[in-house]
Amino acid sequence: MTDRRLGSGTLVIATHNAGKLKEIGALLDPYGVRCISAGSLGLPEPAETGTTFVQNALIKARAAAEASGLAALADDSGLSVAALDGRPGVYTADWAERQWFEGAPGRDWYMAMGKVEGMLAEKGDGVDRSAAFHCVLAIAWPDGEHAVYEGTCTGTLTWPPRGTLGFGYDPVFVPTGAEQTFAEIAPEAKHAISHRADAFAKLVAAQFGA
Rank of each mutant, 00 (worst) to 15 (best):
M1P: 10
T2N: 06
T2K: 07
D3W: 00
D3I: 02
D3Q: 13
R4V: 00
R5W: 07
G7F: 07
G7H: 04
S8F: 10
T10C: 01
V12D: 04
V12Q: 12
A14H: 11
T15L: 14
H16I: 03
A18F: 06
G25S: 01
L27G: 07
Y31D: 13
Y31S: 00
Y31F: 15
R34L: 05
C35E: 05
I36E: 15
I36V: 15
I36Y: 13
S37M: 03
A38G: 10
G39H: 06
S40L: 03
G42A: 05
L43V: 08
L43I: 05
E45I: 05
E45T: 15
F53N: 07
F53Q: 09
V54S: 06
L58Y: 09
R62F: 12
A63Q: 02
A64G: 01
A64Q: 09
A65Q: 13
S68G: 03
G69C: 11
A72I: 03
L73F: 03
D75A: 03
L79T: 06
S80V: 15
S80F: 02
V81H: 02
A82K: 08
A82V: 13
L84Y: 08
L84G: 06
R87E: 13
T92I: 10
T92E: 05
W95V: 15
A96V: 10
R98D: 12
R98E: 06
Q99V: 02
A104H: 07
G106I: 00
R107M: 09
R107N: 00
A112H: 08
A112C: 10
G114W: 06
E117P: 02
G118A: 13
E122P: 06
E122R: 07
E122V: 11
K123S: 01
K123A: 07
G126Y: 12
D128H: 10
S130C: 09
A131E: 04
A132L: 01
F133R: 09
C135E: 00
V136T: 13
V136H: 11
W141L: 04
P142Q: 08
P142D: 13
D143G: 08
E145A: 12
V148H: 06
Y149H: 07
Y149E: 01
E150I: 04
E150L: 09
C153D: 11
C153G: 10
T154E: 01
G155I: 15
G155S: 14
L157S: 03
T158A: 12
T158V: 15
T158Q: 12
P160Y: 05
R162Y: 02
L165C: 07
G166S: 03
G166L: 10
G168I: 10
Y169L: 09
Y169F: 14
D170S: 01
D170G: 09
P171G: 01
V174L: 02
P175E: 12
P175A: 14
T176N: 14
G177T: 12
A178Q: 15
Q180D: 09
F182N: 10
F182Q: 10
A183S: 15
A186I: 12
A186T: 09
E188A: 11
A189N: 04
K190G: 12
H191F: 08
A192H: 00
I193Y: 03
I193F: 14
S194N: 05
R196M: 14
R196L: 14
F200T: 12
F200Y: 14
A201C: 08
K202C: 14
K202T: 15
A206S: 15
Q207W: 04
F208N: 05
